[in-house]
Amino acid sequence: MNKILEVKNISKRFGNIQALRDVSFDVEKGEFVFIVAHTNAGKSTLLKIIAGILEPDEGEIYIEGENITKTPPWERPVGYMPQTYALFPHMTVLENVMFGPIHRGLDREEAIEKAQKYIELVGLKGWEKAYPHELSGGMQQRVALARVLAVEPKIILLDEPLSALDALLRVKLRGEIKKILKGKTVLWVTHDQEGAMSLADKLIVMRSGRIVAVGNAMELYYKPTSLYVAHFLGEINFIESVAHGGFVQILDTKVSTDKIGPVVIGIRPEDIKIVKNNSSPLGRVKELRFVGGFWRLLVDVEGIDLVVYSLKRIRSKEVSLRIHPEDVLVFDYPPEGIRRAVHLE
């Protein structure tokens, strides 16, 4: 184990708002860790506390085993890139990127050299003399990235680095950033689940200031630990049911379970197969929508509405559906009801 960052029991309150509650997790050397959460979950607050520009009410931060909770931000080996980029408007690209190295003790020549290296790495060679307002959003984002890389921190904290960009650019830059950051230790915060799952070595899901799940992206998607996580990471059908005798039933599929009494069955829309077989249960297609690349159907089967994805266009009014038992998730019925259990605060 080679832990770079350890966050231990961090809590933070702003007046009446409990922004963070008892948050703990680790980041290992070279790991790409994503924190995903809805808006106002406390993501930025957490990064600011790690960067040292906010003080936690409780808890500690360790970097390579050393407690830095009381260390001022300028002495922390941490690179923080804020949600707004916050490029210095009165400085050129080169001056922006040099700022860190100069203040971390390099002399001018070395700082310029280092800055140029990272400006080149992010693909902005030739733009050294430009001012931030002369650059496009995507370019500004790269300058911010170069600026944080140039201090060569032990861990890089990125606060929604892509949120200010349009959708196409976002996908393009997502891949590029991953390439630029290869081998570095990164903690990336976002509310974009898809982006996070495509890049993360480790995924941390937060809800209202609390960590609700930690794990590998695929694991959390297919074997979520709670209704909330299942719902948050992608579209899913929830069906109320009752388990007895070690089984629950969905359509004609029997799934074995150790739960007893009221349960919630979860099944992802892509795991419901449309088949030609007449023996499978028949459903009426209530809605059909093209969502780019595939079709999203709402099918009424025996009084239950199911969302189903299909790669092919469905022309008939009725379809037969089949569900494999291993794709079915079974959760205890939440005492507060399904709606509230998955509610995004």
């Binding site: 600011k48 960067a51 040292g52 520009i53 001022p72 931000p73 300028w74 922390r76 941490v78 690179g79 923080y80 804020p82 707004t84 916050a86 210095f88 408007p89 700022f99 860190g100 100069i102 203040h103 971390r104 003790g105 600026r147 944080v148 201090v151």
Partner: peptide, 23 residues
């Protein structure tokens, strides 16, 4: 002035006085 500019400057290594002076 956006306070984030100052916070970033601090995180990049400038203490409060240097941050004031340069930003």
């Amino acid at each position: 002035i956006d306070p984030e500019l100052e916070l970033v400057a601090q995180s990049l290594g400038a203490d409060t006085i240097k941050t004031y002076r340069e930003i």
